[in-house]
Design a protein around this nucleic acid. Structure first.
Length: 139
DNA sequence: GCCAACGTTGGC
DNA sequence: GCCAACGTTGGC
């Protein structure tokens, strides 16, 4: 299983919106690097939901429910389907991620504007620990 | 509101 | 194909 981080401005689409919807199409990504990651996602992969901009914190865990399909008028972009797994018991602010040496190499820090980035299993475990997440959400 | 990072566009 | 100009994003 692979781990990912998907960011969204909560004003545009938030964790609460995802919980309300039950499942959603993660579309509208218009960045070549992000697309590489979207196309690498397979059902069962886990992803951190990160609120950018106004909140700047990881807020929940999602599961990829369907591999990518073409997105956009010309079909040259990609989108996947996701569903919520569990909210993080304690949201993990960006400031805490930056302050944690074990997360210094995280892709989201290296490329701060990238909306879909990869997370290593080690990084995933650290973030879940910081969030106080139990095994159910962390696995 | 400002600024840095970075992707995209367009002229050459 | 290169590179400067420009626009957008996101953190502060």
């Amino acid at each position: 299983m692979a781990y990912w981080l998907l960011r969204s401005e909560p004003d545009a689409y938030s964790w609460d919106d995802l919980v309300r919807d039950g499942e959603t199409e993660w579309n509208g990504v218009r960045n070549a690097t992000a697309r590489i990651h979207l196309k690498a996602m397979v059902p069962g992969d886990r992803a951190i939901f990160y609120h950018s901009n106004t909140e700047r914190a990881c807020v929940g865990v999602m599961e990829i429910t369907r591999a990518w399909q073409p997105d956009g008028d010309d079909g040259k972009w990609a989108s996947v389907a996701v569903k919520p797994v569990a909210p993080l018991p304690r949201p993990v602010p960006l400031a805490d991620i930056k302050a944690e040496p074990k997360l210094a190499e995280m892709m989201m820090l290296k490329q701060s504007r990238l909306s879909c980035s990869a997370v290593t299993p080690e990084e995933w475990a650290v973030v879940m620990h910081m969030a106080g997440a139990t095994d159910a959400a962390a696995a």
